[in-house]
Amino acid sequence: MTSLESHEPPYEEYYRVSSTSARLITTARADGRRLIAVGTTVVRTLETVMDDQGSTHPGEGWTSIIVSPERGDTRSVHALLTGFHEPQATHLAMLEAFASRHHLKLAYQAALNTGYRWHE
């Protein structure tokens, strides 16, 4: 999920989901397993290809979905693994869809205190 400058909406991103991946994701959800996205693009992609009944469909194209607290809960994944992002980055809106701003501030402060580096 990239944007030119702080507080700008992210660019559209290209995605491709194979029929095998779509089937595995749908089966995992049906079995009640947790789905953890690795990266913000994965979240946007899966939000794009999942229908209202929770089935993931194969496909490819460009997604313009913006995941944020205002949009509501994510339907496709339960958690997100990502790097640390600049405080003004639009990535933080997506992170706030998974964790409260207070929790994110605590995590960022702990990271700064122990020498973690920013995402880029």
Rank of each mutant, 00 (worst) to 15 (best):
L35N: 06
G54N: 04
I66C: 07
A107R: 08
L104P: 10
P10G: 07
H78N: 15
P58W: 00
Y15H: 09
L92G: 14
P69V: 03
D73P: 11
T82N: 08
T74D: 01
P58V: 01
S19V: 00
T20P: 03
G83A: 12
A99R: 15
L4Y: 13
E8W: 05
W118C: 05
G39V: 10
S18F: 02
S55C: 09
I25R: 00
L35E: 07
R33Y: 08
T45M: 01
Y15Q: 01
Q109M: 10
I66Q: 05
A79N: 14
G54F: 04
T56Y: 03
P10I: 04
A30Q: 13
G83I: 06
Y15M: 03
G54Q: 08
D73I: 13
P9V: 15
M50Q: 14
P69L: 04
T90P: 04
G72C: 11
R33E: 06
A97N: 08
Y15D: 00
A37E: 00
Y108K: 07
R71M: 07
T26P: 01
E70I: 13
A110W: 12
L80E: 01
R75K: 15
L4A: 13
T90L: 05
G54R: 06
A22Y: 00
A107N: 09
E12Q: 12
H119T: 04
M1R: 06
R34D: 09
A111E: 01
T48P: 00
G54S: 02
A89N: 11
L106E: 15
G72R: 06
T20G: 07
A89W: 06
E5Q: 11
F84G: 02
T90Q: 14
I25H: 00
H78T: 15
G115S: 08
E12R: 14
D51G: 08
E12Y: 08
A110F: 13
L4D: 10
M94F: 09
G59I: 02
D31Q: 13
T2C: 11
M1Y: 08
M1F: 10
R34W: 12
A107Q: 15
E70V: 12
M94T: 06
R23S: 07
P87R: 06
L46C: 02
W62V: 08
L92A: 14
L24D: 03
H102V: 15
K105A: 05
A97D: 03
R23L: 03
H7Q: 13
A110V: 11
P10T: 03
G72H: 11
Y116S: 08
I25Y: 01
T82V: 11
R23C: 02
G39H: 10
S76K: 12
R33S: 12
S55P: 02
G83F: 05
P9C: 05
E70Q: 08
E70H: 12
E70F: 07
V77M: 08
A107Y: 12
S19C: 04
G59V: 02
S100I: 12
S76E: 07
T27W: 07
G115W: 08
R33I: 04
I65Y: 08
R23F: 03
R16Y: 02
L81Y: 14
R101E: 13
N113I: 04
L95R: 00
H57C: 09
V38R: 06
T41N: 14
E120Q: 06
E70W: 09
A89E: 05
L81T: 15
G39E: 07
